Simulated assay, not measured.
Amino acid sequence: MRERIRRLEELPDPALAITGFFAEVLYRTLNDPLNRGCLLVNSALETNAEDADLRQAVSEELETIRSFFESRLRAFSLQRAVATGIDAKQGAHHLLSVLLGIRVLARINPDPACVTDAIGIALTSLGLPPLARCDTQ
């Protein structure tokens, strides 16, 4: 995950960094024949109050992702002078929630339409570029 974030942060277009992140997640989600989901999300679902170390580790990873979304949204707003009515922190919370939701759904039934629609609405609601059609296949 950290390698993906580092690679995407190097893109000159911060909006494409976020869309690219979700395109990769979508590809992995729809092309996992075992429907394993995501190790981070699976770990989050298994944490409990007695396992403080695991909770801390999961929290740190989720914060890394949230921070990536927030920094890219801030850069996007500055670069494009886009006013979406949603600040970068709120947008990052929304994108993180969508990410976690689709990864949980992937464990049960990775319905391509459900996952693609959820991502697409999240991106367009923030003024970000949509997923390319080839990314969903």
Results as ranks from 00 to 15, higher is better:
Leu45Met: 14
Leu45Thr: 06
Glu60Leu: 12
Phe69Ile: 13
Thr29Gln: 00
Ala81Phe: 02
Thr84Val: 04
Glu50Ala: 11
Ala23Gly: 14
Glu70His: 10
Glu9Ile: 08
Leu62Lys: 00
Leu96Met: 11
Ile119His: 00
Leu96Lys: 04
Ala88Gly: 03
Asp51Lys: 03
Arg2Ala: 12
Leu78Met: 07
Gly37Trp: 05
Arg28Phe: 01
Asp32Arg: 13
Tyr27Asn: 08
Ser43Tyr: 01
Ala49Ser: 11
Arg6Glu: 15
Gly85Trp: 07
Ala44Lys: 05
Val115Gln: 02
Glu9Asn: 12
Leu26Asp: 00
Leu96Pro: 08
Ile86Gly: 00
Glu60Ile: 04
Val104Ala: 10
Glu24Phe: 06
Arg133Cys: 02
Leu105Ala: 06
Ile5Asn: 01
Ser97Ile: 01
Leu100Met: 06
Arg72Cys: 15
Ser71Asp: 12
Arg72Phe: 09
Asp53Ser: 14
Ala15Trp: 12
Arg7Cys: 02
Asn48Asp: 13
Leu123Pro: 08
Leu45His: 04
Thr124Leu: 12
Thr124Asp: 09
Asn31Gly: 03
Ala92Glu: 03
Leu95Pro: 07
Ala122Asp: 07
Glu63Gly: 06
Val82Phe: 10
Ala88Glu: 11
Ile5Lys: 02
Arg74Glu: 15
Glu61Pro: 00
Arg4Thr: 00
Ala49Asn: 09
Thr64Arg: 13
Glu3Tyr: 10
Arg74Leu: 15
Asp53Thr: 11
Gln56Leu: 14
Leu100Tyr: 00
Asp117Tyr: 05
Arg36Gly: 07
Cys114Val: 07
Ala106Ile: 07
Ala17Val: 01
Leu78Arg: 09
Ile119Asn: 00
Arg133Asp: 09
Phe76Leu: 01
Pro112His: 03
Thr84Tyr: 02
Gly91Gln: 06
Ala81Ser: 12
Glu60Ser: 10
Asp32Thr: 09
Arg28Asn: 09
Gly120Met: 02
Glu50Lys: 03
Asn109Ala: 06
Leu62Pro: 00
Ala52Arg: 09
Ala15Leu: 09
Phe76Met: 05
Ala122Phe: 08
Leu30Asp: 07
Asp135Gly: 08
Leu45Asn: 07
Glu63Val: 13
Thr47Val: 15
Ile121Gln: 04
Ile108Glu: 13
Arg107Pro: 00
Leu128Ile: 04
Arg2Ser: 12
Ala15Phe: 13
Leu11Tyr: 14
Val115Asn: 02
Arg6Asp: 15
Gln90Arg: 14
Ala15Asp: 08
Val98Pro: 00
Glu3Leu: 12
Asp135Phe: 10
Glu60Arg: 05
Ile102His: 01
Gly20Val: 03
Arg66Lys: 14
Gln79Ala: 15
Ala52His: 06
Val58Pro: 07
Cys114Leu: 08
